[in-house]
Design a protein around this nucleic acid. Sequence first.
DNA 1: CACGGGTA
DNA 2: TACCCGTGG
Length: 350
Amino acid sequence: MGVDLTDLVLDVKRELNFAEIKGKKVSIDAYNAIYQFLAAIRQPDGTPLMNREGKVTSHLNGIFYRTVNLIEEGVIPVYVFDGKPPEMKAEELEKRRRFKEEAEKKLEKAKQIGRIEEMRKYSQMSSRLTGEMAHQSKELLELMGVPTVQAPSEGEAEAAYLNYSGYTFAAASQDYDSILFGATRLIRNLTITGKRKLPNKDIYVEIKPEVIEADTLFKKLGITREELIDVAILIGTDYNPEGIKGIGPKTAYKLIKTYKSIENINKKDLDPSQIYFDYKKIRDLFLKPQVSSPSSSLELGSPDAEKVIGMLVKEFDFNEERVKNTLNRLEKAIKELKGIGRQTGLDQWF
DNA sequence: CACGGGTA
DNA sequence: TACCCGTGG
């Protein structure tokens, strides 16, 4: 799930204007994006899209159409895939597994009483992104000519690293962890747009991409990245999911703002016995995550239309006409995008 | 979520 | 052109 920093970023987050990322690379936390497609691209009763053999295709649908739309908007997406999770994430992963099991039980009940709305909700909650799905997504992107990066460990950390090292202009993820990992610019809601249903209500809200600039956030809060990491640890991260009982974003921020670090917090403000986790190790996971320099160029290549059709149409039963249409749009968008690189610098004269 | 045909 | 809505796989 990541760290809940919503309350702390409220004042600095702003709507993304696509013009500001035109022609720029954005490292996308692939797992995060694919998971959202998998959860969202479903029939009203929650059944995911599947080919005739019953293999789920929701993730491929999302990757294919959304990515082409992004490239048409002028963005060069760089999808970063997860490697092996850090051992300290085990508890969080176990927690997620239990959550899925609960959702599956609730789904069965909803099915029995035939409540379509509930069925959809619990299907979404119980969706699982398999290794095979991640692999298929990566394969599709490669056939499309879209750069991918294999992270040694956390994809989000690698995406942030690509960002602060200058390979990409921003990092895209739903999770605020990106900023803890060092991203300079975080874009949320890049891969999901449109309307989203409010939980348990019949109200739909417009979801728009938003930007959070790390430096602006640090300045606004008057703390450093290191200090924000300590704030996050108090609230609870993927590496200490429980956080500290009774401490939320506001309190955590106040404590670190006052004391600068977890070890400096006065005993009267926080009973040290509450800190049962190895916070120094967690700090290191954010400050010195396992990352690696990209081995490929991270440039858009030429799509292999034949193979994309082979995969989507022949193997996964996508509509041939739609796929061909979209491939044409993709080729056109790539050409235009490559034109931007050559033309910049000339534009100012015209 | 996204497409595309229909409708105003 | 903007939105609605049924369907995609």
